[in-house]
Design a protein around this nucleic acid. Structure first.
Length: 769
DNA sequence: TAGTTTTAAGTTTTT
DNA sequence: CTTAAAACTA
């Protein structure tokens, strides 16, 4: 079958990969296991379509979920064929933003909209829901965002699936109304609005279907319903669709990802072919074995077997430790030793954790011990007060209707403008097309308030003039004085947009305001602002530059990632499990492998399955060595709590792991272990009774029978019994009569049932959705 | 009103 | 332990 005139870049591909690259004509689903070379397939396919099929690069659209993935894809495709530069490689959201900047006017959206992040949404909602506690506001925000993930509008009957209160429907409707008045969008709108436009504007739909002849989607398992709709709308009869995904790596259910999308792809795209990539080139076989053991416990999966092309290697190591300080020290020791011995470099290592909060301990210790590291994707920078302040000022330059930004900055630093005045302005804005600045300008105010307000208006006007390149006192455009790098109040302005930003920060008084905090609290607010200014200098000082800057900040939170200690190129990676998707490291340490932390204690049913997939994702990042650490106690809210090893260890055959017991500083008086002192399957007997996952003292891992795996009763399933009330399945075991289900009821009582007992006063209760 | 002190509450995961 | 909300004082 091999033809002589095939391009050389096809040669390194295995038969399945090659088949996927050369496939044409019908929709294609590529089921690509971890490390099976899917990025290579996509990038090669792009090059092949351009080079061999004569496809115009501009007619190719490839969508990913993260900017990192999009960038990597673009880079690798370009390496194969430089013409790939012209293809559109974007995240779903950045594609949506691009679409809306051009076509949003058809949905009443001005092209200079700003994207609201979750905090902005909450701020807006708390104005709508005036007297509600913050927690309720947050929940509504969450539900609204979820609704948009599922493409549900306020009037959709299906909305009840998310939040059945009529109150929610009203709030959602009012939120949409306010958002339309303001003229901004939230994350969900970036997907939902384009679909609405494509559905109602035939001419636009035709244009897009005509332009994109090939559409590829990476990480398809993480697409939500709205994103699926978008894909559908973009596809015409002749569009070639190719999606790549792995149901075992679906880890974004909580934000609306539908594994169903991948399971049902062949139904939704009729005649689709499926190609499986099951050869793993990344990890050694013991690593894959451990990863697969856990995810095998899931029921709702297509099922696949990864083969390790790399072959054998050292067993993953399970490390039992005393507490999180020991954990950090263990990591530091392990990493440092390997680098000192010249086995590897810092950058071969990654430390994984479940929650961002866990990074702190590693950061402080690594800093002290001089281990270079970088933290990936912690959002903290943008959550900082001073950063949000500066960004709010910038937003107002572009959109004078931005209520959230206006409320935030009109009286900051304090200018004597209270909530009463602010509300008055906002009410009055209705008469000025929502323009808050115009309203402020024209509204009658007390003398004191008027003075304060004028300073603010002047500030914004000066900023706008810089952006629009208008000189204040002359009629001709101001000439650029880019080289003037002057320092004002500790902020050094540079080129481009940073000139404007510096002026805003200084003239608004923000610089002084935050400087004061630095002085008393020893914070780094000025230097954070400086960093923002530095980032801004890469953008032109124009409306477009400013919009681009704001958009990138909202959509690409990794933009401001900085190395915390040492050199970026060669540093240990500190990262959440979620953020590791698509990455690989020679050596990986999965930390905090404790019940309640990972999996989180409230996980059950489908959500527990998602935790297993997250475990799978984390473990399959490792190429050569994998370590898993678990602590006997962990500090939470400043209190020391006992903890027990993750239930995942019970799902792994004992022989698949090597136990490292040297690291534990064994001086814990209150604990005693039966048998081997470091048996990982010995669970902390001191666990509190209120944790329903913990009643497994000393039970070894057992291989599950087929009957058990297929049993409709699974760990964590909520049940109801006529006599005993509500409860949860806490164990399923084999017996001669079939699987036996053990249930612990909320009353504390435990009972066992044969699994076919259902229908006799014993029934499943669905998880609240 | 602004700025302080006291008290309560809370930690997923992300575009 | 850290942060946000509530309560309090000048």
């Amino acid at each position: 079958m091999r033809e002589k005139d095939q391009p050389s870049y096809l040669e390194p591909l295995n038969p399945e990969q090659r088949e996927a690259v050369l496939h044409t004509g019908k929709p294609l689903l590529i089921l690509a296991g971890a490390g099976s070379g899917k990025t290579r397939v996509i990038t090669t396919k792009i090059a092949w379509l351009i080079g061999e099929q004569g496809m115009d690069p501009r007619s190719i659209l490839a969508v990913t979920f993260t900017n990192k993935a999009a960038r990597e894809m673009a880079e690798r495709a370009r390496l194969i064929d430089a013409r790939a530069e012209g293809a559109m490689l974007r995240t779903f959201h950045s594609f949506g933003a691009w679409f809306l900047r051009r076509n949003g006017n058809l949905a009443g959206l001005d092209s200079s909209f700003v994207i609201y992040d979750d905090d902005d949404v909450i701020a807006l909602l708390s104005n709508i829901m005036e007297n509600s506690p913050k927690a309720e506001v947050k929940q509504c925000a969450h539900h609204i965002s979820r609704a948009k993930d599922y493409f549900l509008s306020p009037d959709d009957p299906q909305l009840a699936r998310i939040d059945s209160r009529k109150k929610f429907r009203e709030i959602y409707a009012r939120y949409e109304e306010r958002m339309a008045q303001i003229g901004n969008v939230d994350f969900g709108d970036l997907i939902k609005k384009p679909v609405e436009i494509l559905r109602t504007q035939d001419e636009v739909a035709r244009r897009f279907r005509d332009r994109f002849k090939v559409i590829m989607v990476d990480e398809y398992q993480d697409a939500n319903v709205a994103q699926f709709q978008l894909l559908k709308e973009l596809c015409g009869d002749r569009t070639y669709v190719c999606v790549v995904g792995d149901d075992d790596q679906s880890i974004y259910r909580f934000r609306g990802a539908e594994v169903k999308n991948i399971l049902e792809f062949p139904d939704k795209f009729i005649g689709a072919d499926i190609i499986r990539l099951e050869r793993n080139y990344r990890s050694t076989s013991p690593i894959l074995q451990v990863a697969a053991s856990v995810v095998d416990y899931n029921r709702g999966r297509l099922g696949k077997t990864l083969r390790a092309e790399k072959g054998d290697g050292p067993l993953p190591v399970l490390v039992y430790l005393q507490n999180q300080d020991d954990e950090a020290n263990y990591c530091a020791d392990k990493i440092e030793k390997s680098v000192k011995k010249k086995e590897t470099k810092w950058s071969s290592w990654a430390v994984l954790y479940r929650t961002n909060a866990q990074s702190l301990g590693f950061e402080t210790l690594f800093l002290r011990r001089g281990i270079p590291y970088r933290v990936v994707g912690s959002l903290k920078f943008y959550e900082r007060e001073e950063i949000k302040d500066a960004l709010a000022l910038l937003s107002l330059l572009v959109n004078p209707r931005d209520e959230v930004a206006f409320r935030r900055m009109i009286n900051k630093p304090a200018r004597g403008i209270g909530p009463v005045t602010v509300d008055k302005i906002i009410d009055a804005a209705e008469n000025y097309g929502g323009d808050l600045l115009e309203a402020t300008l024209n509204l009658e105010l007390a003398k004191k308030a008027r003075n304060s307000v004028e300073t603010f208006l002047k500030l914004i006007k000066d900023g706008k003039n810089l952006i629009d390149n208008i000189s204040d006192n002359e009629d001709k455009p101001a000439k650029k004085k880019n080289k003037s790098v002057k320092k004002r109040d500790g902020i050094i302005g540079g080129e481009g947009l940073s000139v404007c930003l510096t002026q805003l920060i200084v003239d608004s008084g923000l610089a002084d305001y935050h400087k004061a905090d630095d002085d008393v609290a020893g914070s780094n607010r000025i230097s954070n602002l400086q960093e923002l200014v530095n980032a801004a200098s890469n953008y032109p000082q124009s409306r477009e530059g400013l919009l681009q800057f704001l958009e990138n900040i909202e959509l690409d939170r990794s933009m401001m990632d900085k190395q915390e200690n040492g050199d970026v190129q060669n540093a240990v990676t500190l990262i959440t499990f979620h953020n590791t998707k698509g990455l690989e490291f020679k050596r990986v340490i999965m930390t905090g492998m404790e019940q309640g932390v990972f999996p989180r204690e409230d996980k059950k049913g489908d959500e527990l399955e998602e935790e297993r997939r997250l475990f799978y994702v984390g473990a399959t990042r490792a190429m050569d060595e994998l370590y898993l650490t678990t602590c006997a106690q962990r500090r939470m809210y400043g209190k020391i709590m006992p903890s027990s090893p993750s239930m995942f260890f019970r799902e792994i055959d004992e022989d698949f792991l090597q136990i490292d017991d040297r690291a534990a500083g064994w001086s814990m008086p209150s604990r005693s272990f039966a048998g081997r002192s470091f048996n990982p399957y010995n669970f902390n007997s001191g666990m509190s009774e209120n944790n329903s996952y913990t009643a497994y003292p000393g039970r070894p891992a057992v291989k599950k029978s087929a009957a058990l795996i297929n049993c409709e009763w699974q760990y964590g399933q909520r049940v109801f019994h006529d006599d005993h009330g509500y409860g949860a399945v806490i164990d399923v075991k084999d017996s001669e009569d079939g699987p036996v289900v053990r249930v612990r009821f909320d009353s504390g009582k435990e009972t066992r049932f044969l699994s076919d007992y259902q229908g006799r006063g014993f029934e499943k209760v669905s998880d609240d959705w």
